[in-house]
Structures are given as C-alpha cells and as structure tokens.
C-alpha cells in the first residue's frame, strides 16, 4: 500500500500534512507519534470514513480513494478502532460468523445455507484469542480485554490482505499484552501485512519491523526500530526536546 501526499485539515487543524508512507508487505509496520499527531485520521482515510483534502492511496493497483468504504473492505482492508467497536446485540459467535461469511448479503443464499457449516471455523478462530468458551456471550458480558480480543478475531476472520490495528494493546493488562503480541507474531509468520498504531513504545520496539513517526501530521522519521530509537527528531518529540 502506497500513501501519497495525503493532507487533511479539520477547520484550522492540519491533522495530516502531505503524508507519504509505504506499507511494507508481509511485515509488521508501526505508526507512532504523540497524541493528536494524525494517526487515527490516517486510518480513517484509508478505510474510507473520511475523505482527504488531497493525495492518493494505491492498494492492489487501485486508487482506493475512489471506492466506497465497504468496497475497500471487500478489497481486503481490515481495520480495528481505537475505541473497540462491536455490535451490542450480537453474540461473539455471530460477530465472527458475519465477518467470515460472504454470502449473507444475499437473502436467498443466506436462507438456504445450512447453519452448521461455519461452526468449526468460528470455533477455531475464537480459540486463537481464547474466547472459544464465550461463543454465546453478548458484548455486555465480555470484559474490556475480551472485547479487544474479539475485535482482533473479527478482523482476522474477515477476508483481508492488510490489517490496520489502532492501538491493539491500549489499556490491557501485561498478560494479555503478551498474548496479543504472540497472536500478531503468528500472523506475521503466516505472511500477513500488519500496520499498527501504538503508544506503548516497548511494545512497538519489540514487535515492529518498520516504523513511521508522525508529528503534527507530518512524517518526521521512517526506519527500523534501531534507527528510530536513535533518531534525533524522534527523541526531541518524545522527550519534549
């Protein structure tokens, strides 16, 4: 995925300012930066929730800015939200079911289809995030950590070729943080392309292979974790220079 020259202002605030980023395939990419530096805005633009003022985004040969949000998702862009976003009247199992299945938009196909067919897959996916005991639970019965995990399971279940994760370990306990790290590493092993936004520097340095640093909507540095750690501009931004 190539993000070219993307700019976006909200009133007077420049959330993104001629942002250029190239997502490395089959790697864990990270986007870091202080609060309000435009990270989430970038995800919102990629997934189609907001339109940029200028620039283009090339993904699988398409200029995806021309596509509607759901078309981009169908093309393989899967994302999570900083504030976990689940469907409150659906069970954990149904969340995975609708993410997995591509037939449900057709009334006929979904009525005729046997219910059992997805069951095993759903269980297997929920097992990877330790939620296989929570098949029938509604969102209100899940803890914060479990919701984070379910959110992750949803984007994994959905057909995708890139995962955009907005702060996957924000607010979770250390044990769960390790669990999520393990899940992401396994996905990486399988050859998935991951982009994560994260404030937890240790987490990023442990897991990311390529890092972009945003500050006031500009990319101020890009490189491997080792390089980023030594980068003067980055140190200034983070240590309040």
């Amino acid at each position: 995925m190539k993000i070219k020259n993307i700019s976006k202002s909200f009133g007077g605030i420049k959330a993104l300012d001629s942002c250029n980023i190239e997502i490395k395939k089959k790697k864990i990419n990270a986007i870091i930066g202080p609060n309000g530096s435009g990270k989430t805005t970038l995800f919102n633009i990629i997934s189609g929730l907001i339109k940029p003022d200028k620039g283009e985004i090339i993904f699988q040969g398409h200029d995806i800015l021309k596509l509607e949000d759901f078309e981009r998702a169908k093309l393989g862009i899967s994302r999570t939200f900083q504030e976990v976003r689940l469907f409150k009247n659906l069970t954990a199992k149904d969340h995975i079911d609708i993410s997995l299945s591509e037939n449900y938009e057709s009334v006929l196909k979904s009525v005729i289809k046997k219910k059992r067919s997805n069951r095993k897959k759903i269980k297997r996916i929920l097992k990877t995030v330790d939620l296989d005991k929570k098949l029938g639970s509604y969102v209100s019965d899940l803890s914060y950590g479990q919701r984070k995990l379910l959110d992750l399971a949803i984007v994994m279940a959905k057909k995708h070729s890139i995962l955009l994760l907005d702060e996957p370990v924000a607010g979770v306990n250390p044990k769960l943080r390790e669990k999520i790290k393990e899940i992401l590493r396994e996905l990486r092993e399988k050859g998935e392309t991951i982009v994560l936004i994260e404030h937890d520097m240790n987490f990023v340095m442990e897991i990311a292979e390529f890092i972009y640093v945003l500050d006031y909507g500009k990319v101020i540095a890009a490189g491997r974790p080792k390089e980023i750690q030594k980068n003067k501009k980055v140190l200034e931004v983070y240590l309040g220079g």
Partner: peptide, 21 residues
C-alpha cells in the same frame, strides 16, 4: 438467517458493518 444477523448488526452500528465489507 445470516442476512438477519447483518440486519441486527446494521441496526447497532451501520458504519461498523460497512467497515466489515
């Protein structure tokens, strides 16, 4: 059916469902 589940999800959060494609 699965279609019905999509309707329920749409009622809860339409944008969230669009993001799932």
């Amino acid at each position: 059916s699965g279609f019905g589940k999509l309707l329920g999800a749409m009622r809860d959060d339409e944008t969230g469902l669009r993001i799932l494609g």
